[in-house]
Design a protein around this nucleic acid. Structure first.
Lengths: 250, 250
DNA sequence: AGAATAGTGTCTTTCAGACACTATCAT
DNA sequence: ATGATAGTGTCTGAAAGACACTATTCT
């Protein structure tokens, strides 16, 4: 049986196709802690639960294109912000019953938002809320991830996520953690200029561990990706730290 | 505009959906070199070109399930072999014009086959051929990958790949390379028992570099994943190397 | 001056690369 | 014995962890 015979036997127009969507994990920092932008579902299925922003993929757009459209239409990014935001494909989720309405396969994307953008989007877009992420460290090899509402975290109650979006979120954190050390993702969450302490805090928040200060500074400075701005932190009641800017390696 | 309004506006049953397929990158070693199993397309589109084995995703199966089905039906794996083979999702390709017939989005999977399985499948399944992979190292950051027929490599002419399958193959090699150092993928290509030299050869073939022998041995043995079998290599005209078995870390 | 954090000097340990050396097997 | 590869001992240098120390700014 060769491929063409197979294609005839399974003529796609004659059979039902799964629906295809994209879902976006929009990560940022809220109070120095990792957080994600979520939409509260108003109607069922999963009414009252929180979902990642997403959309169906149209026949005439790429997957990346669909993800970029969600960024504009559902997260309210303007063209410039959307252009600047780097969307990275994360994984494709295809469990048969992941949506109770019908068979839907979703391609998950991950984007890291600078603190200012993250806060602004959450403020301007009433449909979106920032939810702090809490990671359970059961097995050290990447346990389950729970999301908490960043505003209503007095009781530390978990925000219920819709569909399999908790799995998607967990994978996003793991991906981020894996790339933290050898890529420039650590800078994507920070504003234009930042201190080394802020950078270290971001790394520690994502990794869930504490890092050695001199070693961290050495590694970061030796890479040559940091340019001192000459300016210093303002508004502290102690010695202000020097501000650095991230410059992509040549 | 909230999600439900959006869902109403884009009722998926009212609009055309992309078709969804899975494609498998079945990697193995041929003569110590990385190779992939390909199917020569008999009819157009892309007649005469070589394609990764794949299939449409059925409504009642997961993506992983569809990939496993291709392994059995198109690659001719029996149930036991298919069970043993670990399929890993690689990436989802969604360019609008990647297939000339219609809009098809494909989820690519990667599997590593032990030498014996690789050779056996190629021999028994007339539709499949092993093609050696050649990697161009233009930019050091992962340049284009070309596939050569392993049998007809006298002239070193590139095998033309169908659709965007060259891109898929290139990404598979990059993924493999990235995981080689911190995972156990290096063992998946080797037979049950193997020498440290064979293991090093596999690593060098995938990385495209030569490695330091004492350092390599130290790293591998210190990980505690290797168990000496007590037996030794046979059939050499020199000192036979000790054979090791891979044991998963506890 | 005191408090609080920024930033550095240095010792130790760990580990990869390099190189030379010894060990062992077939012929 | 010879040839060829397996396998190891050891030196060196690079880099991380630990710790203590100095520096700087605000109140």
């Amino acid at each position: 049986m060769d491929e063409d015979a197979f294609l005839k036997a399974y003529d796609p127009t004659a059979f039902e196709r799964p629906a295809l969507t994209v879902d976006l994990v929009l990560l940022g920092l809220s109070d120095g802690h990792p957080a994600v932008l979520l939409i509260e579902r108003a109607e069922h299925p999963h009414a009252g639960r929180w979902a990642l922003p997403g959309s169906f993929v149209r026949p005439d757009e790429t997957l990346d294109g669909a993800a970029a459209r969600v960024l504009r239409d559902k997260a309210g990014f303007d063209a410039i912000e959307a252009e600047r935001t780097r969307l990275e494909q994360l994984y494709t989720f295809g469990a048969v019953d992941r949506d109770p309405r019908m068979r839907i396969v979703t391609v998950a994307y991950l984007a890291l938002l600078p603190e200012a953008v993250f806060a602004q989007v959450e403020e301007e877009n009433a449909a979106l809320s920032a939810a702090r992420i809490a990671v359970s460290w059961a097995g050290e090899a990447g346990g389950p991830v729970a999301a908490f509402a960043v505003r209503d975290r007095a009781g530390h109650e978990a925000l219920p996520l819709a569909f399999d979006h908790a799995d998607i979120l967990a994978l996003a954190i793991l991906r981020l953690r894996g790339k933290l050390d050898y890529s420039d993702v650590g800078f994507a969450l920070l504003p234009e200029s930042f201190t080394l302490r802020q950078l270290q805090d971001v790394h520690e928040a994502i990794l869930g561990t504490s890092l050695n200060k001199p070693a961290f500074r050495r590694r970061m400075l030796d890479r040559g990706w940091l340019v001192p701005t000459g300016a210093r932190e303002a508004g502290t009641s102690f010695r202000p730290a020097e501000l650095y800017r991230f410059r992509k390696p040549l």
